[in-house]
Design a protein around this nucleic acid. Structure first.
Lengths: 243, 243
DNA sequence: GAGTGGTCTAGACCACCCT
DNA sequence: GGGTGGTCTAGACCACTCT
């Protein structure tokens, strides 16, 4: 019987799944920061006592989930999430020519407080948990077009409210400063009439139809790490989804 | 040199890609209708003169694209698109509890005519091409909530305008009657104010914010087979997207 | 040229389904 | 019990990258 440096739980899970979990743990644990080259497949296979094919299957899965990037002839690297890349990946607004809208962000207001019932529900927090709230306007060609209200569990992002400035893309800050890797988002989209507050912030008439985007963001281990409510006034632009 | 009954084009494309193309062609060509069991992996491998592992990789890809379904111990089957399944897969509206909304459909109006410039652009049709236009209301719990205007190239769906009744789910009709397999959709979502026409059809006040969903549907070979413009009045429901 | 990922093969054993 | 897909191994050759 070979000894494995994998999950001690030998029941059920196939080998490649345990290899995948092992590699993922070392990435999220910070052993291999973004941009690092992983050991070669053969070396990982030797280290873990499995065949190269099994390592390959695990790395294929991590590649599909965009945790890792493979470069033929060079190596396998922990996916690097540059600010531009993160915007590109999670900002779903496109203009009429099909090009992605790349928004700017105005200085934000940041505060902290005890989570409301709605915030606790959306972020699956315990009663009494505290949150960081960020409010900002996004602009496009110099004009306000999107109002963001972002809520984060304070326990996951201690000190974030002390930042001098909130960057245009929060998600790479999450990764670089807090080691929290954004994995996926779920968005609920509806059409709403502009309230007085939104009308003023987006410079439209009250009652103007706006797109409301309610987003929950998950990290690689499945934790809810952000709740974001955006209201957008889209002129010659649209929300895009592929199914 | 082994002789392959695969694509004669030997350059570039890996073997498994040619196996995949071969199997896909036999499915879309009607040799294996939906629900049919494919030959076993070993048998396909023998027939095509490749190893089982290569066939497996091809079938894995077709499984990921939902062209085929695998049942351990039983076999690999051409994906069967029941009406309920098609609704489930391509209808993106969910209620507040997270359950998918399953709409009903009222009798539709069907007509044909020469494609307008917009219709030609969205469906990539030649000048002079003819289209079938379907207009219908979808209901939810007995109340109108969505107005659909559907445009199809007549060349792909001859005689569809003569149907006695338009089914609630068109997509499985496409597959069963015309052998056209829906592969994916692209949707552009915006918020608009209800026009007089939409207000009357959806029983809301003019100016009410509606969700406008502009969808182009592609078949397995990448052809555009449908353009659909839906306007929805969503109460306690939302459009859902996972990214 | 050495090292990496990408493809392909051949064969083994297992878990599961069907009859 | 026989057939199927699911997993795993070992080894080969290729295409690419780096230096």
């Amino acid at each position: 019987m070979r000894k494995l440096r994998l999950a001690p739980d030998e029941n059920g899970a196939p080998l490649y799944a345990r290899v995948k979990a092992n590699v993922l743990a070392r990435i999220t644990g910070g052993d291999w920061p973004p941009g690092t080259a992983l050991p070669a497949e053969m070396e990982l296979a030797r280290e873990l006592g499995v065949s190269q094919g099994t390592v390959r299957k695990a790395l294929d899965a991590l590649t599909a989930e965009q945790v890792v990037v493979r470069r033929q002839g060079s190596g396998t690297y922990v996916a690097e999430h540059t600010p531009a890349h993160m915007l590109f990946r999670f900002f779903n607004i496109y203009d009429e020519s099909g090009a992605q809208v790349l928004p700017d962000s105005e200085p934000a207001r940041v505060s902290t407080g005890e989570a409301t019932a709605t915030e606790r529900r959306r972020l699956e927090l315990e009663a009494g948990a505290r949150v960081i709230r960020i409010s900002r306007i996004r602009t496009r060609a110099g004009r306000a077009f999107m109002d963001d209200r972002i809520v984060l569990p304070e326990a996951l992002f201690p000190g974030l409210d002390q930042e001098a400035e909130v960057p245009n893309t929060l998600y790479d800050l999450f990764q670089k400063r807090y080691g929290i890797h954004v994995a996926r988002t779920e968005e609920q989209v509806t059409a709403v009439a502009a309230t007085a507050r939104l009308a003023e912030r987006l410079d439209v008439k009250p009652g103007t139809p706006l797109l409301a985007i309610d987003r929950v963001t998950y990290d690689l281990s499945g934790r809810r790490i952000e709740w974001r409510l955006s209201h957008a006034h889209l002129e010659r632009a649209h929300y895009f989804a592929r199914l």
